[in-house]
Amino acid sequence: MVGNDVVAIHAAENRASFARPGYVERVLSPRERRVLARAPRPEACFWSQFAAKEAAYKLLVQLGELPGFGHREIEVSESLDAVTWRDHRFELRAEVRPRWVHAVVTAGAPVVARVLEPGAGHDPSGEVRALGRALAAAVLRVPWERLEIRRAELAGAWDGHGPPELLLDGERAPLAVSLSHDGPFVAAALGIGRAGAALAEAAGAG
């Protein structure tokens, strides 16, 4: 299982949110705000923490939890290597670049992840699915046409849908997938469990 989130640091909407009175306090715990106060790049720091929370949220949904609107309850470590929520603790991998931040959260499984900037005029929803399929095709060593990403409806979920699922020839593939897009960036992460690793190895040997 895997969750990921990408944030375009300098997107106008994100800059406005960061500057909005009360926004940071609504999202970050007191401890996280102390980390932010010391950060040399406050916006990058904040959006790294936010992306980590979003990635953890997506992973928690896969685990059957519904963290809801409680941003402050999902806590990000100062070193950006862990996220906790109640009795869950996840590994966090955060990448902070000049224009974007990307967070990937897992329960310890190996991960393949990528951030791309498709360019103006591209549909981010379509592009991020294409990225997910391309990554999966490379891991599984199969033609990408055999892969499909879908999201089933899920009552109670924030947007009415469950997490994305990767299908190989119409059947559930042994890889977890998480998709994200913000501004000009799209990001995908694959969680490679033992079954996925074995399948990739078999495909390579065949």
Partner: peptide
Amino acid sequence: ILKDLKVNSARLVDVVL
């Protein structure tokens, strides 16, 4: 709000505020 109007999750905080 999320599904039909496609409000980004980061903007939900703005909406609540």
